[in-house]
Design a protein around this nucleic acid. Sequence first.
DNA 1: AGCACA
Length: 181
Amino acid sequence: MTELNGVIFDPETGATLHIELARSNSRRRPRVDGAYDIIDKRAKVRNDEQNIWSNNGNGGSDADTEIENSSKKGATQRKRKADDARSAQNALSSRKSKLQDGISPCSTLFIANLSPLCSEEDIKKMLSECRGFEVLKMQNKSGKPVAFANFSGIEEATEAKEKLLGSLQAAADDAGLHLEV
DNA sequence: AGCACA
């Protein structure tokens, strides 16, 4: 782990490594936040239904009852919005628990802001010390080198991320620097 | 902040 010093994290240039869980465009689970889209559609449909109802029900269109109806409508809309928010929460949390069950859609670490000095082999060497590390792919696009590290599972990926950040912190302390992550 | 390949 001492080889880390000056390779991945370079105190000379002050280059810091950014590590996060990668965004995945896996076809199996395309949208993590798709719940909101569905709920938006639902809300629209409900509003339309409400308009139809109030139009039919009013018939003779009295001014006083119209005001009364509109205030009632506002109340029910507010309540439904709250309900929607709650169901969105439920959907998200249920999906999250699915993720933690190990059905991992994408257990990849996204590594950015790499030092230009560190090679793919260097990172690979680093990552191979982490549990569940599988494959590393590097990409050098428009002067922003980034790396994708595949792990066997999300838990392994997060663990590796924590480990790397820890090592970075250690290296920074060693060099008497402050690290921002 | 910058997220590809299967």
